[in-house]
Amino acid sequence: MTISVVLVDDHAVVREAVAGMLSSQDGVSVVGQAGSLTEGRALFDRMFRTPPPGRVVAVIDVTMPDGSGLDLVRAVREQNKDIGLVVLTMLNDDSTLLEALDAGASALVRKSAPSDQVLSAVRRAADFPLEFSASGLAEAMRRRHEQPQTSLTSRETEVLKLLVEGASVAQVGKSLYMSQSTVKTHIGKIYDKLGAHNRASAVIAAVRLGLVADVDRA
């Protein structure tokens, strides 16, 4: 069965190189490209209305000019459980890997990886869209469990900063290019990690733990 691939990456050279590599493979067809989150959202809106043939896999960069590609991953996964979502990134840190896992990605591949790893991730994501794979996943999970439970991801820290500043859920979403449901998911995780039940108790906990000071310095 055909694998229809959508590419979302602001680096045209990288996007075209990946498109060329994938298009040369039997049974793989690149059906759309976008250079920003805004273009990516519009591309997915059209694709949801008129699905391409076969199984669909999106290859999405993390660092984009108008936000994080992981927010697009999360938004797409909220709408569709069958799309393969491969995160392609230059970043090499636990936070990005674990956030990709939490966002519902199918795989994370670093841009420094050989092209056959990208192809393998795309094929696997087509077959198992809800099973996450990434190099170094086991080690990252071990380090996550060894860290204090109050450790926030970079995205959660950004949300916390805006909450401390008094932003509403809608304002947080607008500032960080996220849907309100995604913002609420982040807030729920922040509350869980801080042992908070509402915004006020979260702010108090953040001050006590020194998290607000860290945010303010950022």
Score class of each variant (00 low, 15 high):
Leu43Glu: 03
Ala206Gly: 12
Glu99Arg: 14
Ala205His: 00
Ser95Tyr: 12
Val212Pro: 06
Leu152Gly: 11
Ala140Trp: 01
Glu156Ile: 00
Thr153Lys: 12
Met47Ala: 07
Asp10Gln: 05
Leu43Lys: 01
Ala75Val: 05
Leu101Trp: 09
Ala42Cys: 04
Ile187Lys: 08
Gly40Val: 02
Leu108Glu: 07
Ser36Cys: 02
Met178Tyr: 00
Phe128Tyr: 14
Thr182Arg: 11
Ala138Trp: 05
Gln180Met: 12
Ala126His: 10
Ser29Met: 09
Leu130Glu: 14
Gly84Ser: 02
Leu119Tyr: 01
Arg55Ile: 04
Ala213Asn: 13
Thr89Ser: 12
Ser179Tyr: 00
Thr89Asp: 02
Ala121Met: 06
Ala75Asp: 15
Val73Ala: 04
Ala205Met: 03
Gln180His: 11
Val159Trp: 07
Ala138Val: 09
Ser115Cys: 09
Ala196Trp: 05
Val172Gly: 01
Val203Phe: 09
Ala113Pro: 13
Thr185Leu: 12
Ala105Glu: 05
Gln117Val: 12
Lys111Met: 01
Ile83Ser: 02
Met178Thr: 02
Gly210Cys: 07
Lys174Val: 01
Ser4Gln: 06
Leu88Met: 13
Ala12Gln: 07
Glu158Cys: 04
Ser120Leu: 05
Gly84Ala: 01
Asp45Thr: 10
Leu211Arg: 07
Val18Pro: 04
Gly27Met: 07
Val18Trp: 00
Ser36Glu: 01
Ser24Tyr: 00
Ala134Trp: 04
Val109Met: 05
Ser23Val: 04
